[in-house]
């Protein structure tokens, strides 16, 4: 579109080149080269060392724990996101702004503090911790704590994708379906859900990426037991602090691939919705 701008509505060529150059240099330095660093460092000792770092039993158990955590957190937050978006986007009620602010709250809480509140609740000296520990239910330094902390940190992601999307789409199709005699759930599954599927998919992918990559909050509640309560990001930290740089970057490259996949899905979603807008 820039090419179609008349000359008096854009900058002289030299300025355009200069601004583009500075912007690209900034992105190269902060985004692109760091990305190259991950894969260069990961393969520095060859593909054999790379595979060995990932096939290590401790790494495998970290992968398993990370996947289990995401498998619990993502559906829970996705269902919440749909419910919250349904209530906020389709209905008017008092206190809507307050509710929206509260949903966004976990974004402005440091991950360390997010982990801390669960230690205060479920730790050995916490509010309900001693009661649960007496019944042999471990939350902190175990899977439930990791799941809770991760849920907190990724809490708003799906809701935030869906609320503006549902608001912009309006209720006409749903109202038509209901007038024609469809039931509530039928309307939801056959009308509303298909309407938001790309937004929901991106929300889920983002939530999955964030929950597998969460570090600060999980670091507080996990207890760092090797092969037991170590997630992938914690495993990266341990390897790095033990100066096993290639192994650390090998594991980090897995997480980076996951991040890149998220970006691809986002690009696809924007491409799809852009095509529909033009059609």
């Amino acid at each position: 579109m820039a090419a179609r701008r008349p000359r008096y509505l854009t900058e002289p060529t030299a300025i355009r080149w200069l601004l583009t150059g500075v912007a690209l240099a900034f992105l190269l330095l902060f985004l692109f080269l760091p990305l190259v660093v991950v894969f260069t460092e990961a393969f520095r000792k060859g593909i054999g060392a790379y595979v060995a770092a990932l096939a290590d039993p401790v790494a495998l158990s970290a992968i398993r724990l990370t996947l289990i955590t995401a498998a619990i957190v993502v559906p829970a937050n996705a269902i919440f996101g749909v419910a919250a978006a349904w209530a906020i986007a389709k209905f008017d009620f008092r206190g809507k702004n307050l509710l929206t602010t509260l949903i966004d709250l976990p974004f402005s809480v440091s991950p360390v503090i997010a982990g801390m509140v669960f230690v205060l609740l479920f730790g050995a000296h916490g509010l309900v911790g001693p009661y649960l520990l007496a019944r042999d239910i471990r939350v902190i330094f175990a899977l439930p704590g990791i799941v809770l902390a991760t849920t907190f940190v990724t809490f708003p992601l799906v809701a935030r994708e869906l609320i503006p999307l549902m608001q912009s789409q309006g209720n006409d199709e749903e109202e038509a379906a209901l007038t024609l005699g469809a039931g509530g759930w039928q309307t939801f599954f056959r009308i509303s859900l298909p309407k938001i599927k790309w937004g929901l998919l991106y929300g889920i992918v983002l939530c999955a990426a964030r929950s597998m990559g969460e570090f600060g909050a999980v670091s507080v509640v996990s207890g760092h037991v090797r092969g037991v309560t170590n997630t992938l990001p914690l495993h990266v930290e341990i390897l790095y602090n033990e100066y096993q740089f290639s192994a650390a970057f090998a594991v980090a490259s897995l997480l980076t691939l996951m991040a890149l996949l998220t970006l691809v899905v986002k690009g696809l979603m924007e491409w799809r919705s852009g095509r529909r807008a033009n059609a």
Binding site: L27, L31, F32, L33, P34, L35, V37, V38, E41, P111, L206, A209, R210, M212, G213, E214, F215, G216, L232, P233, L234, V236, E237, Y240, F245, A248, F249, A252, L255, T256, M258, A259, L260, T262, L263, V264, K266, G267
Partner: peptide, 22 residues
Amino acid sequence: DGLVDLPFALPTAVAGIVLTTF
């Protein structure tokens, strides 16, 4: 344009070790 979102998606621990190495 797509790459701009990388810091949203990249786990912070990875960003940490990458920037330090860099």
